[in-house]
Amino acid sequence: MPKTVAGTGAPLPLANVDTDVIMPKRFLRTITREGLADGVLADLRFDEAGVRHPEFVLNKDAWMNASIWIVGDNFGCGSSREHAVWGLRQLGIDAVIGTSFAGIFYDNARKNGLVLPMISAEERDALVRMTEVSGDVVITVNIRQRLISAGDLTIGFEMDDATRRALLDDRDDTLDTLKLMDEILAYENRLSGKQWVRVMK
């Protein structure tokens, strides 16, 4: 992944946007990861006939192509469904900037290259105001330096080292962990038989 992601920003300051809202359940009955872009915020973006709600920010010309969202507190709460993150990536969203994210959503984002910088409420509100005024505000998120720049604002953001490293290196966690098999075997050798689950078939 590049050291920075950049694009225009859209304001979505609602608090507690949960993964049921980000990816409604009717899109979950699938065995693939594909075709989820239309599901993102579907009940906010579209009416039941699939017609766009013209007043919703992401349906207005100025913000329709935004690739960075500025969001309310506790974004991504609720269900563990990774479909929410897959859909965001398929919609072309590269970063979601907020004050706090639910833990499972945060980890899912890391696995899929979705950047989640955390900033203070005041800084977030400043970005919301800036992007509300214009859909042309280009926001740059520098992952290596943990810095957001937008207009004349420069904001340092919080991101734990392991997430930052995973985003920068774009590695496959599963294959990486398999290289630690000696450690895993050593751990397993320390377990007693009573600490070895055998689920009855």
């Binding site: 469904r81 980890d107 899912n108 899929n112 966690d173 098999m181 895993i184």
Partner: peptide, 16 residues
Amino acid sequence: IGTSEVEHILATQTLR
């Protein structure tokens, strides 16, 4: 956990 972590456990029985 998310689905990527389900995969991680299936392959390694561990999690990061």
